[in-house]
Simulated assay, not measured.
Amino acid sequence: MRQAHVARATKETDIAIELELDGTGCVDVSTGVGFFDHMLDAFGRHGLFDLKVQAKGDIQVDDHHTVEDCGIVLGQAFAQAIGDKKGIRRFGSSYVPMDETLVLAAVDFSGRGQAYYEVPVATQKVGTFDTELAKEFFIAFAREAGVTLHVRLICGENSHHIIEAAFKACGRALREACEDDPRVEGVPSTKGSL
């Protein structure tokens, strides 16, 4: 079973995440940040990951620490669950349309955690959610998961649609990259390691 249980507690947040890569999209999320809960739900359901996130943070300050730290812990969970990376597809990509919006996400389980997030939105808020926090989440996630992640807005106007399409596209791209490929022997790298 490719699964992980990761917890992290600081003076700002207390987060516990359970992840199963080969799940059915069963998601249970509670972070105290409503729009972010919705995004993590979309991420898990479209990635077909079984995902449980329990987070308490200093949201009386703002949502930044909670969102970024969830990215850290979820990235650590992916790194733990994927293990030695033997037999995986390694690369994955997905285009996700939502009405007027189209977003591309592409991922490589390279071991080199970096994110390239070019998803401009016109508004600073979706409800009470600071739209810039989506980028902070993906940067933290990619770094800790050890993946190279590209997220690009192809077209779109509605900020809710844009951010949601980004989370769905990332979930689907990760699902593809994590999948076992029966034709791959060992680690899918010309160097022999990732």
Rank of each mutant, 00 (worst) to 15 (best):
V67Y: 01
I139R: 05
R152H: 15
R90Q: 07
E136M: 07
E176R: 14
D37K: 10
V6W: 02
S159H: 06
K125T: 14
P97H: 09
I72Y: 05
T148I: 08
M39K: 12
G113F: 10
E132I: 08
S94P: 01
V107S: 03
L48I: 04
D50G: 04
V96N: 02
F137V: 05
G47Q: 09
I162W: 02
A79L: 12
A7V: 12
K191C: 15
G92D: 11
G146T: 04
L104Y: 04
V107M: 06
D41Q: 12
F35S: 12
A16W: 00
K85H: 09
R2C: 13
D50S: 09
D41K: 12
R89P: 00
I72R: 08
A145G: 02
F49Y: 08
H64K: 04
D99Q: 01
F138V: 03
L102K: 06
L19D: 05
A115P: 06
F49W: 07
Y117M: 11
L48T: 02
G75K: 06
A77M: 06
K135S: 09
T190C: 14
K135V: 10
L19H: 09
A81S: 07
D84Q: 07
Q76I: 01
G32V: 13
M39A: 13
R175S: 06
V151C: 06
Q124P: 05
V29S: 11
V151I: 15
H5I: 14
V103E: 03
V103L: 05
V96M: 10
T24G: 14
F129V: 13
A165N: 04
E144P: 00
A106N: 02
G25S: 12
F141I: 10
F36C: 13
M1I: 06
F129N: 11
F35C: 13
F137Q: 03
F141E: 03
T123F: 09
V107C: 10
F35K: 11
H38I: 13
K56Y: 00
V151S: 02
T101W: 03
D50F: 07
D84C: 03
T123N: 15
E100W: 04
V126S: 12
G23K: 12
K168A: 05
G127A: 07
R172C: 01
R45I: 07
V121F: 13
A4I: 03
R112M: 06
S193Q: 14
A4F: 12
